[in-house]
Design a protein around this nucleic acid. Structure first.
Lengths: 348, 348
DNA sequence: ATGAAAGCGCTAACAT
DNA sequence: ATGTTAGCGCTTTCAT
């Protein structure tokens, strides 16, 4: 017995049928007799027939494969988004090819080309931090391959995209701190050329304003939000505004740094200083106290993005108008901000 | 101008050449004149010709795609392994398709079938926790598709695999604790039916033995190693062996739980109790004190596994004998175990 | 140095 | 209900 893989024509030959009949039988075509179908299926099982998807893809002009480009796959956020993408894509019978741009615009462009050459049916794309020139995206449009952006998106009404409402996340977190009785709320902000950081800051500012609180520049510190930036930022804030009673951070890493400084100074969390961050990182439940944070609904973002993409693929990119979906964030209240007894720990 | 994608025959028609000549020119065949090559390349550039890899793959019987099956993609470990895999695979001109089994044996089998149907040239596989029946792997062998296992492997000399030396990791961590002056070293162990947990425990036991220390059952606690297991395990250990002066944990999550209990009891780390864990999780540098841990060389594992797979693909699976690569772990010493002044913080 | 022709395995008109 | 035929875009023998 050879190691030869059974093909449709093998089945056809053994059954004295034409390849087309076998092909139809395999796909349960309505005008093939039940008897024939049974014979075909039985032999296919026996010979362990597996369709050659490459050939089918070539013929049909459709690979049943989706391409994904993310800045990186390590780190909680994109890993979860990808998980969401895979779940839905597989359910719909699509394979997924994942590429990492490593935050590099050139690599991102190469990734896209790779995916196009692999004849993917659609692309899910989250831009690298260094991508400023979007010209190369023309290549995708020229090929009529649908694209859906997620999280890091081209800000345009002409593209399909799904993003989180970062503004709302900041707004809710700060409102929560105010509800807990905080009145001097500081902010650790990120690079303001990034829309997510800008929006979170805007949410912070508006929450203060709507509650009749002033925006005090000495309560705001911008940085790159690494852990050491959080430490340094907190030192600065405590020096120039020792009366502060809460911190809202644009990410959780900087918040951990801030927390270290606060503890070191002998201040109590949340009684003296309440803390809230952004991203609901895994470690938020490992610190003491556990950190309140805005959840970004990563998996949902992934699921939504694929659903939009599948729609574009099935309807044809010209028929469906581009739209922008905005997901609502989910504030997870933990010990670091809860001054009352009720501890609301939702999900993870 | 149509949205039609240029194909080889388009180029051939426009240049009054045959498709075969154009095909050869594009692949820089030696017996095509430089003049012709230049004409072909020029027009290809103009028309933005992109080869249809599907067609080439069908013809060549080679898809230039590798399949990867991991238990899950979130979580530091596999994300980093995948990163390593992608790096090398892309360098070698291979695409990568990633599937998640979600620790489910049935899903894992489906993933493998999906990859085989997608005509991948090789498969990288890390087994799910629930995989006990390896019969389905026969399907891969029947197709002569090379496979390399990593981390969670089939323990057999007949398969190619790359794993970490978990025994050595446990051994080194415990030797380090002994060097720091600890003599009553406790162990938080994982499920002993998992070879990684068993090996780490063996490393612990042998390190004690080789240093003339007794193995005291009241210093050992087995669990599933979630954070709450770590807390509970530590309570138990401290109750039944209050004299303990160090803990080696089979993973870092349980160690965090243990740390919380130790702090709560007012014991100092590392002066009263020194701590060492396993996996070098991201949060190890966020806790106070920072946690000593055994790094698993995730990216290197990924890189090594692809290299082995590419070798199998290029040489043919029958020509290269299966081999098992064992990577040496890397102990990262941080504050939680360092009783002297020298703080050795290597890499991240 | 170039061309003609076959074929990878499949699907889908277009017959009958 | 089944068969015939063409072709997806490419590579590769075999000619010349």
């Amino acid at each position: 017995m050879s190691t030869h893989r059974a093909s449709i024509s093998d089945l056809a030959a053994q059954l004295n049928l034409s390849v087309s009949t076998v092909s139809r039988a395999l796909s349960d075509h309505s005008r093939i007799s039940d008897a024939t179908k049974k014979r075909v299926w039985e032999l296919a099982r026996q010979l362990n027939y597996q369709p050659n998807q490459l050939a089918a893809a070539l013929r049909k002009g459709r690979s049943n494969t989706l391409g994904v480009v993310v800045p990186h796959i390590d780190g909680q956020f994109f890993a979860l988004v990808v998980k969401g993408i895979e779940t839905i894509a597989n359910q719909a019978g699509f394979n997924v090819m994942i590429c990492q741009s490593n935050e590099d615009a050139a690599q991102e462009q190469k990734n896209v080309e790779t995916l196009l050459n692999a004849q993917v049916d659609g692309i899910l794309l989250s831009l690298s931090l260094s991508t400023h020139d979007f010209g190369y995206l023309e290549a995708i449009r020229r090929r009529d391959i649908p694209v859906v952006f997620f999280d890091r998106v081209v800000e345009s009404k002409d593209v399909s995209a799904v993003v989180l409402n970062d503004y709302q996340g900041g707004y809710e977190a700060v409102c929560h701190l105010i509800e807990q009785g905080c009145r001097q709320i500081a902010h650790l902000g990120g690079p303001q050329h990034l829309n997510i950081c800008r929006n979170r800051y805007q949410g912070y500012a508006d929450a203060l304003r709507h509650n009749g609180l002033p925006i005090d520049p000495s309560l705001v510190n911008f940085s790159d939000l690494r852990i050491q930036d959080g430490r340094q930022g907190m030192e600065t804030l405590l020096n120039q505004a020792p009366q502060l009673d809460a911190v809202f951070s644009c990410n959780d890493l900087a918040l951990v740094g801030a927390m270290q400084i606060i503890k070191r100074r002998g201040l109590r969390i949340p009684q003296d200083v309440a803390l809230a961050g952004f991203s609901n990182e895994l470690f938020d439940s490992l610190t003491e106290p556990m950190l309140t944070s805005v959840d970004q609904r990563c998996e949902e973002m992934g699921r939504t993005a694929v659903q939009m993409l599948l729609e574009l693929i099935n309807e044809g990119p010209t028929k469906v108008a581009p739209r922008q979906v905005v997901l609502q964030p989910n504030l997870l209240i933990r010990e670091s901000s809860l001054r009352t007894d009720l501890l609301q720990e939702t999900k993870a």
